[in-house]
């Protein structure tokens, strides 16, 4: 009551003045939090780029804020020992092929579950969902041993073929297929004498394009970042993708920090560029994927 009367006694101007001040303070604080957070997210990458341009003595003795001129020297030492561009090309190849395979077969499986009413389809789809729950480490040793039996070690097959059975992709694309592809279109294509596989290629894949793009970006990043599988199945250093090469720099350049930093820069900058152009799509994919699960 007292408070109420006090407030009433204040003139309207005072209230709005106080309120505005408080609001400005709160907003200022919120922006401060956001900017500090953003700095914490980006500074390590800034520090990485700066460090890659300095000599080893500078890196180990000074706190560096400005770029130096040793990048080329560091780079030269790096490529003498680690074939980093070979790793880059390996990564590009594996990611492009792996992602395409995953997208194509996930769409195929999704379409099969979405538009065909065959026996046990519900049970089989539940099996697909159940595999989402299985943690990967259960199969690692068996997978390694099996690949040895198949004589597939030190080849790219173990990194590409399993992508055909992607449970998340199948699930994600089936949801989209249910909505985006109408059964009437397929029916009318059949009337015109279009074969089933042709209908899938000509009608279904184009209709699934937006969903394929969303899932494709996620699959692309996942494949690009893959480390465990290549490191256990490939023995030849020249076959390794970029992440393994970067890990190799650590073992081979114990104290050559400059060369290691250059290796890290080469592996991070492509992802930075990709993200700069596709950030909205990538983040939409993350939240769409998570909420659908």
């Amino acid at each position: 009551m007292q408070l109420n009367s006090q407030v009433k006694n204040k003139t309207k101007e005072q209230i709005s003045e106080n309120y505005r001040l408080k609001r400005m303070l709160v907003r200022g604080l919120i922006y401060l939090i956001l900017i500090v957070g953003a700095a914490i997210c980006l500074l390590p990458f800034y520090s990485m780029i700066i460090s890659s341009t300095h000599s080893n003595t500078d890196i180990s003795n000074k706190f560096l804020l400005l770029p130096g001129d040793q990048f080329i020297e560091n780079y030269k030492r790096l490529i003498k020992i680690v074939p980093i561009w070979r790793g880059f090309l390996n990564s590009v190849f594996l990611t492009v092929v792996g992602t395409s395979v995953t997208l194509y077969f996930s769409a195929m499986t999704a379409y099969g579950f979405s538009k065909y009413d065959f026996k046990y389809s519900k049970v089989l789809f539940s099996c697909v969902l159940a595999t989402l729950m299985i943690p990967g480490e259960l199969s690692i040793i068996g997978f390694f041993r099996l690949m040895g039996n198949f004589h597939m070690l030190n080849t790219y097959w173990p990194l590409i073929l399993p992508g055909i059975a992607n449970a998340f992709g199948t699930f994600f694309l089936k949801q989209n297929c249910d909505q985006a592809v109408s059964s009437e279109i397929i029916e009318s294509a059949r009337m015109d004498g279009c074969g089933e596989l042709k209908a899938f290629h000509r009608l279904v894949l184009p209709l699934l394009k937006p969903a394929l793009a969303t899932f494709g970006i996620l699959a692309f990043i996942g494949q690009w970042n893959s480390f465990m599988l290549p490191v256990i199945t490939l023995f030849d250093n020249n076959l390794q993708p970029l992440p393994v090469m970067v890990a190799m720099t650590r073992g081979q350049f114990g104290t050559d920090y400059g060369a290691q930093y250059v290796g890290i820069v080469i592996s991070i900058v492509p992802i930075m560029l990709l993200f700069a152009f596709l950030s909205r799509k990538i983040m939409d994919g993350v939240s769409a994927g998570a909420l659908k699960e």
């Binding site: 499986t109 099969g112 595999t131 199969s139 068996g142 059975a165």
Partner: peptide
Amino acid sequence: SRFGYFFIAPYFIVFLIFGLYPIIYS
């Protein structure tokens, strides 16, 4: 509708060989 099996077959073949079998093999 039996064509459905044809579309999901690659998934299950690959899953049995590269997914399920390694788990049992482990």
